[in-house]
Simulated assay, not measured.
Amino acid sequence: MVGAELTYITLSQWLIIVYQVFGGCCTNVFVLETLFKNNKSDYSLTTIITFSQFLFVSILSYFPNADFKQSNLRSLYLKPTQIPIKNWLVLVAMFFTTSILNNAVSKFNITIPVHIIFRSSGTVVTVLVGRMFGKKRYNRDQIISVVIISFGILIANLPLAISETSYHHFKVNYDFVIGLSILLSTSILGAFMGLYNELLFKKYGTYWQESLFYTHFLALPLFLFVSPIVIKEFNIIWYDKNYITPEIKISQQFINLLLNVGSQYFCITGVNILASKTTALTVTVVLVVRKFISLIMSVLWFGNELTISGLVGAMTVLSGALYYSYATNKKNKEDNIKLE
């Protein structure tokens, strides 16, 4: 679906990517919405969810980076890094910030469908950042696809930001606008993160397992600044009275949290493998298609309202993403002909 850039990924790798990105990420969104729907407290639970994801991924991704024979306790039995730690620290700061902000937007009347549609703007932002800061070139068809995606996002979100209260009088939903502003900020930061990650892989090699571990592990100390919220939200989940069964006194919300962090690990592993094999923009387009599937699940399963403008906007965004796939494949063929 994403064109010739993926032709050098083996069939087994491609199957793993499809399973982890689409299976893991869609399951993650499904369980996340279940956590939000069952939350009866005044806390959003986003901080404990983010912390649990970072901790769980750090633990599981530690072992591929460990060397218990050649290393020692002082270095936590870790192998020497192929990419300097200072480079990982830059990526960690961006990754931690985007993760916290993306989960925090639920406080600003941003529903899961709106969140999914707007996050699809990552393709647009990635193109702009790549052109302005990465010296990347895009053909006419790729630019047209970006315009289509931008138009779809505008159609889907503008009616939600501004509502008509009376004849020719409009009211701005400021909470919604703030939420969209946060999402825009995370999209911009995410585009820089993708570009920076791509540059690191080109310079040092595609060490995606090292990337997965250090981007999560080095971020754990940052949660000390929000530790009171982490503890409070964990207690809310742990002591929730909605048990699995009357006989098994285990909180269903706690099980949902475990399912969320587990699916997040599979999701982000697939994304890291894909990022190590292709460009930042192609990764973004693959995730746009995945988000569209999550959007359908959110509307059909949880009964989230999707207005006519939202549906039209979502279909327009998907069309733009698929058109980008065609444009990228066309560009790669033209570049190969020139090289010959």
Rank of each mutant, 00 (worst) to 15 (best):
V57T: 06
V57Y: 00
S58F: 02
L60Q: 01
S61M: 06
F63K: 07
F63H: 07
F63T: 08
N65P: 04
F68W: 10
K69W: 13
Q70Y: 11
S71K: 07
S71P: 08
S71I: 09
N72T: 09
L73Q: 13
R74Q: 15
S75C: 10
S75Y: 15
L76I: 06
Y77L: 03
K79C: 00
P80N: 15
T81R: 09
I83G: 02
P84K: 09
I85K: 11
I85A: 01
K86W: 05
K86G: 04
N87F: 12
N87I: 12
N87Q: 09
N87D: 15
L89W: 10
V90Q: 13
L91D: 01
L91T: 01
V92A: 05
V92D: 03
A93C: 12
M94V: 09
M94D: 07
F96D: 01
F96Q: 05
T97R: 02
T98A: 06
S99Q: 14
S99C: 13
I100L: 09
N102I: 01
N103E: 07
N103A: 15
N103D: 07
A104R: 01
A104M: 07
A104S: 14
V105F: 08
K107C: 07
F108S: 04
N109A: 12
N109P: 12
I110W: 03
T111Q: 02
T111Y: 00
T111S: 15
I112Y: 01
I112W: 00
P113F: 06
V114W: 01
H115R: 14
I116Y: 06
F118V: 07
R119S: 03
S120T: 05
G122L: 07
T123K: 09
T123L: 10
T123C: 09
T123I: 11
V124H: 08
V124M: 07
V125L: 11
T126W: 02
V127F: 12
L128P: 06
L128Q: 12
M132Y: 14
F133S: 08
F133A: 10
F133G: 08
G134E: 04
G134K: 04
